[in-house]
Computed example of a mutant assay.
Amino acid sequence: MTAPFLSLAQIHNRLVLTARWVLRDHRPGADGRCPICRTADCPVAAAARDVLRAAEEVQLWSTATRPAALDRDEPRQAG
């Protein structure tokens, strides 16, 4: 399935799964270096952590809108 046919939730899930997969592959070894990049501070792992952090902040699951703030200049209607 290609991206134009995916929902936002599916795209979100694929980004999260890909970032987790990258973090698994770029996990530092016993010497503290990435086994693929061979650096101590792997930029690929840092980018994957940023993707996961951003994905946690996005709230895709709530489609309800928040109630509008009350306008103090408008009179309230009796219910």
Rank of each mutant, 00 (worst) to 15 (best):
A45M: 05
F5G: 05
Q10N: 04
G29H: 06
Q59F: 15
T65L: 03
A55G: 02
G29V: 13
E56Q: 06
R38A: 14
Q59N: 15
L8Q: 01
A40Q: 13
F5V: 14
R66I: 02
V58R: 06
R14I: 01
F5Q: 15
V44G: 05
G29W: 05
A64Q: 08
N13G: 13
L15W: 05
T39I: 14
P4Q: 14
P4M: 11
A3T: 10
V51T: 09
V16L: 05
T18G: 01
L8V: 06
V22W: 02
R14Q: 04
P4D: 03
L60W: 07
A19F: 01
A40T: 15
R27M: 13
R49D: 04
T39S: 14
L17R: 14
A68K: 02
G29M: 06
A45I: 02
P28F: 11
A47N: 08
R20Q: 08
Q59H: 07
R38Q: 10
T18F: 12
F5C: 13
R53L: 07
A68Q: 01
C37R: 12
A48R: 00
C42R: 00
A47V: 08
G29A: 12
L52G: 02
S7T: 15
I36Y: 06
A48K: 00
A68R: 07
F5L: 14
P67K: 06
L23K: 01
S7G: 08
F5Y: 15
L6T: 06
W21F: 03
I36R: 15
R33Q: 03
R66E: 03
D41A: 09
R49C: 09
P4F: 12
R24W: 08
L52T: 03
A47M: 12
R27S: 15
D31P: 03
T18R: 10
T65R: 10
D25Y: 07
V51M: 13
R14N: 14
H12R: 11
C37P: 06
P4V: 05
R53I: 11
E56G: 12
S62P: 01
Q59E: 10
Q59K: 05
V16I: 11
A64N: 02
